[in-house]
Amino acid sequence: SERPALRALIKVSLLKHEPTGKPIILEGVFVGGSAGKAEGKLMQYHPLSLCNTSEDERQESDFITIVKLEHRVPRCLPLLDKARMALDKGAQAVIFDVSDDTNAAAELRETDSLPRPVVLVEADDAEELMGLVNKNEEANVVIEIKMEPKWPHYD
């Protein structure tokens, strides 16, 4: 039977707010056999920026890429290649907002060869993340595996 997809906890701390502020906790799903921990500054990439390996901007610090996928943007590359390209560009992890691209989840679930975490988000979790991006609210993101509660033992 198909192995259940591991869920991801996405902890978002706003950089311009006092450090005591509680992080925003969101959820997603790991894909590509890449479940694990990652941390970095949230950085949006346009879907068309992951089409070729042209000379690109280099980020100074560790960063986590977020890409809002759109079904109206013709796929220049398979999603797996886009994920790999984002990781090759130095991302510690990649978050895909698949709210508006329902095929994306299926496309990425068929593989498990990605070297670092790739997470899918949608609906409210995606809306919150993209809302921060839209307001240019600099944020640090920590991605972890969500530990599901173990079934209690009935003796």
Binding site: L42, H46, S49, D100, N136, A139
Partner: peptide, 29 residues
């Protein structure tokens, strides 16, 4: 030609060039 709130332009009118502009943490077309 088409655009979205978060990504800006997704495609351009004929003859125009698509430039991906970085504004802080955002990148829009």
């Amino acid at each position: 030609l088409t655009c979205s709130d978060y990504n800006g332009c997704l495609s351009c009118r004929p003859r125009l060039f698509m430039h991906l502009e970085r504004i802080g943490m955002k990148q829009i077309g």
